[in-house]
């Protein structure tokens, strides 16, 4: 398994999170160094108490769709057998979250095929229906 800098396969990072106020958030937002990314995240449970976070992206990443699975250990991440409805692994560098945050629409479209975008479009329509029904 290749990991680390290549960011392929299992991505492992340490993170520290703090809650901040709306005012502080808005001030910090004026100092951003990336695009603002807007997405809808749908959390669905799968096997072994794991959860999939399905993200639907908007704006210049319109039509992009990803599914992230978080694991309690690297061992479990390496041994994970994905459900059939999940496709190829796309955590690699070209489409990493950081790279995505700097792409304009043209750059994004050069990385993702029209075929995938068309397929995503159908899935996103179904997801939006599911979201509506969940409220």
């Amino acid at each position: 398994m290749i990991r680390g800098i290549s960011n392929y396969g299992v991505s492992s990072k340490y993170e520290i999170e703090s809650n901040i106020t709306k005012e502080y958030y808005e001030t910090l937002l004026t100092r951003k160094i990336s695009n603002k990314i807007i997405k809808t995240r749908i959390v669905v449970p799968i096997q072994n108490k794991l959860k999939v976070e399905i993200d639907i992206y908007y704006d210049c990443l319109q039509g992009f769709l990803t599914a992230e699975v978080e694991f309690p250990s690297e061992e479990e991440a390496n041994q994970f057998e994905k459900p059939d409805w999940l496709g190829e692994e796309i955590g690699y560098q070209e489409l990493s979250n950081r790279k995505l945050a700097h792409m304009d629409e043209k750059q994004f479209k050069s990385k993702v095929s029209q075929e995938i975008l068309n397929q995503n479009k159908r899935i996103i329509e179904k997801l939006n229906q599911l979201i509506k029904n969940s409220y």
Binding site: S11, Y14, E15, T66, A67, F80, L86, E89
Partner: peptide, 15 residues
């Protein structure tokens, strides 16, 4: 500090 371990996939279809 939390450790975030994840893998990212495309979505083929919805079950």
């Amino acid at each position: 500090m939390n450790k975030e371990i994840e893998r990212k996939y495309a979505v083929k279809y919805l079950p």
